[in-house]
């Protein structure tokens, strides 16, 4: 069953056409890797799935619900179900780690202060961040910021997670930590889209891969097929034949 459906998605900025008739579906519990050269518009697709960008034409359905024509107020309900993990974490720099993690819990749950503290302690241990509650984002390393950003996004148990290059610029240790977290979320049945240039991570966590080129999805295939078929467009893209 398709949880995310994108049909005839087109988008331009000024005179520059970024996407024309993008189409793809993501099934429940599946992780789709979105690949493409820099500037191919992968993040634009991801941002549109949560209503941060509006397509010029086309349809985006989340769990069967059309989101393109929804107002900001109506999108709040969608955003409780769909989490977005920003490339740089996008942590609130005026708040410490605890308050960043408490933000979605205070906004969208009826938990009391003690329950919020317990939830945060649990997730900090899960992400290997315990002891960092009172540290501000500017004092954290890039990898830790990404992990806090990821923890903040999933703390209210969304159905779908959109990852925007979560492993970019990370050392192997932090990359593996992020991969493990995504795999754990998959085990829990979470659906996700994974925008990345990091092919080992894409192979480790994705079920299918989609290639965005010249404003279109030119190929979607399973990771197994991409790996084994030398002539597959995605396989050739990974080897550097296409941009």
């Amino acid at each position: 069953m398709a949880i995310i459906e994108v049909n005839n998605f087109s988008k331009k900025f000024g005179n520059k056409i970024v996407h024309k008739n993008i189409e793809f579906q993501v099934n429940k519990g599946e992780c789709l890797g979105l690949l493409g050269g820099s500037g191919a518009g992968k993040s634009v697709i991801l941002r549109s799935l949560i209503g941060l960008e509006k397509p010029d034409t086309g349809s985006i359905k989340i769990e069967g619900e059309e989101i393109v024509y929804k107002t900001e107020k109506e999108l709040i309900e969608i955003r409780k179900k769909v989490a977005y993990v920003f490339q740089n974490g996008a942590l609130f720099d005026s708040m410490n780690v605890f308050d960043n993690l408490a933000y979605p819990l205070k906004e969208h749950t009826k938990l009391n202060q003690q329950q919020i503290s317990d939830e945060i302690s649990k997730i900090l241990i899960e992400f290997g961040l315990d002891g960092n509650e009172h540290i501000f984002p500017s004092e954290l390393s890039g990898g830790m910021q990404k992990r806090v950003g990821l923890a903040r996004s999933i703390i209210i148990n969304p159905h779908i997670v959109l990852f925007d290059e979560p492993t970019a610029g990370l050392d192997p240790f932090n990359t593996i930590k992020i991969q493990e977290t995504i795999l754990k979320l998959k085990e829990k049945g979470m659906t996700s889209i994974f925008v990345t240039h990091d092919m080992p991570s894409a192979f480790a966590v994705c079920d299918r891969l989609a290639l965005v080129q010249e404003g279109k999805v030119t190929c979607i295939d399973t990771v197994q097929n991409v790996k084994k078929d030398e002539n597959n467009i995605i396989n050739q893209f990974i080897k550097g034949y296409y941009v």
């Binding site: 941002r47 941060l52 709040i76 409780k80 920003f86 996008a90 942590l91 906004e107 996004s153």
Partner: peptide
């Protein structure tokens, strides 16, 4: 964007 993405 994060404020919006977090449903606020």
């Amino acid at each position: 964007d994060a404020i919006r993405a977090l449903g606020t």
